[in-house]
């Protein structure tokens, strides 16, 4: 692949970086990233990845844009209310960068479809809003050997870690989903819109670093921040031998939907 004059100008601030350069930008353009959830985390991640020139971006979401989304889901605009989120997101990404190929999946991820959806991508971004989906994404990525970025937000807090095969996975830290309704969702407890932006852009940066193969990923550590006190902290850990999916004697050998997903679906 050779960059044309327009691309050299468009990506000049990347190319001038010693750790990116023409070679790194070409890797970004050849890259395929899947974003699961076109919401608070997925919106900023999608905007920055399209702007960065990621060649293929997949976006998964079964919902339509709602008025209450616009406080933080910055890829959707007021006239998009009622439209499919994946269509709204695809349009904005293509407006930012007409060269990006956007593939839409207007559905939720389940044990039955996730392996097929993730298989063609280099890196996956978890921008979902519930534990069943977060654990399913982890298990699917571990079993398929795909790197992914976990992200979670609530109120003024955010957390993120990056999984790469061979390193600690989300279940190494959190084993199993918490009991239903113990940990509130953003719909129940609220979230500062800018916190979603802070975390989603960290996830986009991780995807780009993975594609160019430079820098230190958030592997074997969890980055946590509280935007109310504006404090950031990283906790290091190692792969957990007792991990139910990547440990030495894993109980999870195939994908399964957990109860909570079923309950939440019925409420929809």
């Amino acid at each position: 692949m050779t960059l044309n004059d327009q691309q050299i100008e468009r990506f000049s601030r990347h190319i001038i970086l010693n750790d990116v350069g023409v070679e790194g930008q070409e890797k970004i353009i050849a890259g395929k990233v899947l974003i699961i959830g076109a919401g608070g985390l997925g919106a900023p991640a999608a905007l920055y990845l399209a702007a960065a020139g990621v060649g293929t971006i997949g976006i998964v979401d079964g919902d339509e844009v709602d008025l209450s989304n616009l406080q933080r889901q910055v890829i959707h605009f007021t006239p998009d209310i009622g439209r499919a989120k994946v269509v709204s997101a695809k349009e904005k990404m293509e407006l930012i960068n007409p060269d990006v190929k956007v593939i839409t999946y207007k559905e939720r991820v389940f044990a039955s479809n996730i392996a097929d959806i993730i298989k063609d991508y280099d890196f996956i971004i978890d921008g979902t809003d519930n534990f069943p989906a977060k654990f399913l994404i982890n298990d699917a990525c571990v079993l398929a050997g795909k790197p992914f970025s976990h992200g979670g937000i609530l109120r003024f807090d955010g957390q993120t870690m990056t999984y790469v095969p061979g390193r600690a996975c989300y279940r190494c830290v959190f084993q199993n989903p918490p009991p239903k309704n113990l940990v509130p969702s953003c719909a129940q407890a609220g979230v500062l819109g800018a916190v979603a932006g802070m975390l989603g852009t960290i996830q986009a940066a991780e995807a780009l670093k993975y594609l160019i193969g430079k820098g230190e990923l958030l592997t074997d550590r969890l980055l946590m921040f509280n935007a109310f006190r504006m404090e950031f902290r990283t906790v290091n850990f190692r792969r957990n031998a007792d991990c139910p999916v990547c440990g030495s004697n894993p109980a999870i050998k195939e994908l399964k939907d957990c109860e909570q997903a079923v309950c939440e679906l019925k409420q929809k």
């Binding site: 889901q73 979902t128 957390q159 940990v183 953003c186």
Partner: peptide, 11 residues
Amino acid sequence: IDFLYFMGGGR
């Protein structure tokens, strides 16, 4: 000792 909170939000 570290307490790592479950955080399930994202949308």
